[in-house]
């Protein structure tokens, strides 16, 4: 791990998080005893089979849902008012169809009371980096799937939070676009030094991007194992063909398959 990890307390600590949903048929346990430590500037992925509570976990982290058990800390102290202070990019782009690319991107700043004028100016500077130059004034219906995802990510980034959660942001894209997005995201993150948590079911995606990978097991979701990806940065997609990488990938896939 080469990124700036300072020797202080983790920026995010999950302490034995559990979630139980109340339904008419009774209680459904979605998560049990999930503990994690995320350091500042780290890129961490969470992989697991579908239905293992990955999205539930992100919703709890973002502050949208409350955990049934456990606590969430930042720098060692409890962190309760997370809603609005953690960047969260959901699976669907959720762009507002009546707003242009530019006006979708500045939503967070607009909400926090920044004038539209200065928010737009700031966002315009980012358009190139996000591959949206020339499309600032287009509407979502005029964009391809990959572009919509990039607008959604720009919207999340412009909210300017230290910690950003990504919920399978590339799942709906075709393979080629997806690997382009991986390369692009790697470049972005390496220049930002923000803390990123990526939820995915794509093992290769998790390994190529992350410093560490949390492997979850299902029903109810729990942490099976934590895998460190000791590969140098900056990374490139070509690393996916290296023997070390393939060994690691096989290891994670075996972890996912095992039933304990």
């Amino acid at each position: 791990m080469t990124n700036t990890i300072r020797n202080n307390l983790p920026v995010l600590t999950l302490n034995r998080i559990g979630k139980v949903w109340q339904s008419r048929e009774g209680q459904v346990e979605a998560l049990t005893d999930v503990s994690m430590d995320i350091q500042e500037g780290e890129f961490v992925s969470i992989v697991g089979p579908s239905g293992c509570g990955k999205s539930t976990l992100l919703n709890i982290l973002a502050g949208l849902d409350a955990p049934s058990k456990g606590t969430i800390l930042s720098g060692g102290t409890p962190w309760r008012d997370r809603l609005g202070h953690i960047g969260y990019m959901p699976q669907k782009d959720l762009l507002l169809p009546w707003r242009s690319v530019l006006d979708n991107a500045i939503l967070a700043e607009e909400i926090s009371g920044v004038s539209k004028e200065s928010a737009r100016n700031e966002a315009l500077k980012m358009m190139g980096e996000f591959g949206l130059s020339g499309f600032e004034h287009n509407y979502p219906y005029q964009l391809s799937g990959g572009m919509k995802q990039r607008v959604a990510l720009l919207r999340t980034v412009l909210a300017d939070n230290e910690l950003i959660l990504l919920d399978e942001p590339f799942a709906a894209l075709d393979a080629l676009t997806r690997s382009n997005m991986h390369e692009w995201l790697l470049g972005l993150w390496e220049s930002w030094h923000k803390t990123l948590i990526l939820v995915t079911h794509d093992v290769e995606e998790a390994l190529i991007l992350s410093d560490r990978v949390y492997v979850l097991g299902g029903r109810p979701g729990f942490v099976k194992s934590v895998v460190s990806v000791d590969m140098s940065r900056p990374r490139s997609l070509a690393m996916a063909d290296q023997a070390d990488f393939l060994r690691l990938k096989k290891h994670v896939i075996n972890l996912l398959k095992s039933t304990s």
Binding site: Y88, L94, R155
Partner: peptide, 17 residues
């Protein structure tokens, strides 16, 4: 849409916003 509503909440939006 409920998902969009939740997305706006994570951006810090109030009920009125």
């Amino acid at each position: 849409d409920n998902d969009t509503m939740r997305m706006l909440k994570t951006l810090g939006a109030s009920r009125w916003q």
